[in-house]
Each structure stands twice: as C-alpha cells, then as structure tokens.
C-alpha cells in the first residue's frame, strides 16, 4: 500500500452472473493525481470505475470478491452504506446527464438533501461549484433556465459542477468527453488538470492522446486483467509489457 494512496483495490474479482468481468485486480490510486484507465472495449475498465463508488450495485446478479479500501475502510464491508460512499466519491458519466431542472437546481439538488443549508449558503455553493467547473461566466445570468438548453460541453461541465458541489474526495469520470466536440473536450481536459489540486481523479478513456495529455498514471486493462500500471510517461514511452505497447501504438484494439 502506497503511503499516499486514497483507494486500494485488493485482489478484486467481479462477476456479471456467471461472466467474470474482472480478475485479480490489485492496484492503488494515489491522492491528488489523475489516473487514466485505458484498454479496448469490454476490458473491464468502466466496470472497475463503477465498482469504486458501488454503482454496480444497481445491476442485478453481480458479485464482488476481494476488497476495495477507501481511506482505509473496505467499501464492500456489510455495514457500509453505499450512499455514504457515493457522497465521498463523485461520478461524471459518458453522456452529459443533467436533470431536467434549472441550472441552479441541478447543482443545489444534492447538497439540499444532504445538508441543512440556508439560501445564501446554497447560493454560494452553486456559484463556487460552477466557478470550479469553469462554467460560471457562461451561465451566471441564466441560472433559472433549464439545464437542457445548454450545449453538450456545457452540460458536461454542469455535471462536473454538480458532482463537485457534494464536496467529494474522489471524482470518477467515465469517458467524460467521448460525446463532446474537440473544443469542449479541451475545456474539460483543462478543467481536469485544474481540479487535481483538490481532488483525486480517476478517468476512463478510449482516447490514448487524452490519457497521455492529462494523466499522471495510466493503467492498461485487457480482458478483465490489469496488464500494466505505471507513470503515464513510462507507459507511453517505454512500457514493460509488449501487449501494452501494441495497444498504445494502435496495433490492436
């Protein structure tokens, strides 16, 4: 276990029914770093991501073996409430999924249910979250308009702001830019770079250049196994495993 690891995955196996989606995964995610999970479709990287905040609980017939420690506590221990875990470990999805509410209410929805906040506290939180997600200047005059009117890139930044408003420690991102145009993608990447000062970010991406650009560490998965996990610079210049090199150079996948 690394000293500054925030999440430790210890010998995790995961099953969808009889199908084994992850085999003997063992890895530590370090605090305040951006870790990229890469690999071909169906390699289990998204599955692993969704294990980290127990989103796979929503799927019937799944089974987890092994343990995942968050700040030293096994999040799959029987007495752990997944709701508590998800407050600490936020998530941004592949497709922007704002609620059909106003921009303001999208942000205030979670905090209002969780804390007893005054109107001005919520106002501050909304502003602060939107500023963190670099969306404030674009939406400060239309906070009471529906979030559905925003562009895809704005919606995704709104979703990031919504997750940040819950004051999580970790932010999980499941291909957050795959549905966005290049300019929106660049904005989100910039944002990720900014956010890692305060948050630990784990991002699944299909885009190799993106992983190389924004991550500090990269993990390569193939058919449910962790093949190689190292500093991003090392993975992309001198990987230890031939398989990794083949994937990164585009020989398969």
């Amino acid at each position: 276990m690394g000293v500054n690891a925030i999440i430790n995955v210890n010998d995790v196996n995961f099953y969808y029914g009889n199908f084994k989606a992850l085999t003997d995964i063992k890895m530590d995610f370090k605090k305040n770093l951006v870790t990229a999970l890469i690999g071909p479709s169906g390699c289990g990287k998204s599955t692993l991501l969704r294990l980290l905040n127990r989103m796979n609980d929503l799927i019937d017939g799944t089974k987890v073996e092994g343990e995942i420690l968050f700040a030293g506590q096994n999040i799959y221990a029987p007495d752990v409430d997944p709701v508590e875990i998800r407050k600490k470990i936020g998530m941004v999805f592949q497709k922007p999924n704002p609620f059909p509410k106003t921009i303001y209410n999208n942000i205030s929805y979670g905090p209002k249910l969780m804390w007893n906040l005054s109107k001005s506290d919520i106002d501050d939180l909304v502003e602060q979250s939107l500023k963190q997600a670099v969306l404030w200047d674009e939406v400060k005059d239309i906070l009471n308009k529906s979030a559905m009117n925003l562009s895809g890139g704005q919606q995704q930044r709104l979703c990031i702001a919504r997750a940040l408003a819950m004051k999580p420690d970790v932010l999980l991102m499941d291909e957050p830019t795959s549905a966005l145009d290049p300019i929106s993608t660049a904005k989100i990447e910039e944002l990720i770079d900014d956010l890692k000062k305060n948050y630990t970010i784990i991002i699944v991406t299909h885009n190799m250049q993106q992983a190389a650009r924004i991550s500090d560490e990269t993990a390569f998965f193939y058919i449910g196994k962790l093949i190689e996990y190292n500093k991003t610079g090392k993975i992309f210049t001198k990987p230890d495993v031939q398989h990794t090199e083949d994937y990164i150079t585009g020989r398969f996948g």
Binding site: N53, M55, L58, V83, E84, I85, R86, K87, K88, G90, M91, F93, K95, N97, P98, F99, P100, Y109, G110, L113, M114, C159, R162, A163, M166
Partner: peptide, 20 residues
Amino acid sequence: TFREASLALGVSKWQTIFRI
C-alpha cells in the same frame, strides 16, 4: 441516466424516486 446521476451524488434510492 437520471437515476444514476442522482444516486451517484450520494442521494438515497427513495429520495431519487421521490425527487427525480
């Protein structure tokens, strides 16, 4: 996706059903 978005924020299932 609405349900997932709400649950991922750490909102309980009942609140998600009731509010979203």
